[in-house]
Simulated assay, not measured.
Amino acid sequence: MVNDLEMAPGMQETSLAANSRGTILVVEDDPRLQKVLRRIFADEQYTVVVAGDGQTALDLFRLEHPLAVILDLILPQISGRELCQTFKSISIDTPVIVLSAITEVVDKVLLLELGADDYVTKPFSPRELTARVQAAVRRQHKPRTAATYRFADCEIDFKRMTAWRAGNPVVLTSHEFKLLKFFIENAELVLTREVLLNEVWGYNAYPTTRTVDNQILKLRQKLESDPATPRHLLTIYGAGYKFVP
């Protein structure tokens, strides 16, 4: 396991991997842990860029268009929570993996609702961290849903992150967009709660599957004309859920 292990905060350094598999943005203000994370991902043939504060991270995100982000929560200038939400507003498809010593379930749920793709607790296993990053990247390279998708009286623009029902705007969180997108990509298939947790939330083990039920309830309230008798986000009793356009 790796604990929080010499750059000044805000400084950036790039590790260029030969035949790079893509760029990983590491947002971490501890110089020792910066070095550890840089080495872990450079050894996996990624190009690594490092930010020690929130503003540098935001600048690098816009400049580098990273394949994925490793994000600490406690940072100078801009908090990790605010950064997570901003990253997702710029590029919803860029995986953000939070790496933090905070273990409270409520914090994990909040971050997932802000759009984080996964959450790894310090101290961490390098193998687990790289596996989760690679899994998040694979999920984003599945066949893409059209930027604008229509079903019934709903119109969803995934690129602009806007939603309309019966001509009226509907406010969805970034995580609700992710969940809806996964349903659309797997239309007519029965999806278990465990599959949804693994593929949308990014957790192999999550405190409760009620998280899935609550998120689908919210989507029904926002997108179904009659949430009590849904026509599109269906419960398949004893199995899971199914999206029917």
Rank of each mutant, 00 (worst) to 15 (best):
A147P: 09
N168D: 09
T173H: 01
G22M: 07
R139F: 13
R165A: 10
N214H: 01
I74T: 14
L71N: 06
I156R: 06
K178E: 11
A17C: 10
M11W: 08
L233H: 01
N198C: 03
L234K: 11
L5D: 11
F87V: 04
L58R: 08
A57R: 02
S225G: 09
V106G: 00
E224R: 04
L196Y: 04
D117E: 12
L233R: 02
M161A: 13
G52T: 03
G238R: 01
P207E: 10
S174C: 04
L191W: 07
S20D: 08
T94H: 05
A18D: 14
Q215S: 11
A152N: 12
T192A: 11
K159M: 10
R62A: 14
R81A: 09
D226P: 00
L180Y: 03
T148Q: 15
L71H: 01
G52H: 05
K108M: 15
R39V: 09
K218V: 07
T235Y: 03
V105Y: 12
T86P: 00
R138T: 12
G80H: 03
A146H: 15
T208V: 02
D107Q: 15
T192I: 05
A42P: 00
D107R: 07
I24W: 08
S174H: 08
F61S: 09
E28M: 05
L73H: 02
K108C: 11
P66H: 08
F87T: 06
S225H: 06
N204A: 13
V109K: 10
Y119D: 09
G52S: 05
L196K: 05
F243W: 09
T208S: 15
P143V: 10
T192H: 03
L73W: 04
H175W: 10
Y46E: 08
A101Q: 07
L197G: 01
V2G: 00
P230V: 05
K35N: 07
L83E: 06
R138N: 15
I184Q: 02
V2L: 13
N198D: 14
F151A: 03
F87E: 07
F151M: 05
H175Q: 14
D107P: 01
A152M: 04
M1D: 06
F124R: 09
L219C: 02
P31T: 02
A68R: 06
L233N: 03
P207S: 10
T14N: 06
F243Y: 07
R21M: 09
I97T: 07
I184N: 01
T56M: 14
V120S: 06
G54Y: 05
L110T: 13
F87A: 07
L112C: 14
H175G: 00
S91V: 04
F124G: 07
Y119N: 12
R165I: 02
A166L: 08
D157T: 05
A163N: 08
H175R: 14
V190S: 08
G115D: 11
A187I: 03
T173C: 01
T14F: 11
I92P: 10
K35A: 15
V137F: 10
E199L: 02
A228C: 00
E155L: 13
F124Y: 11
T145K: 12
Q85Y: 10
I90C: 03
D53T: 06
L33T: 11
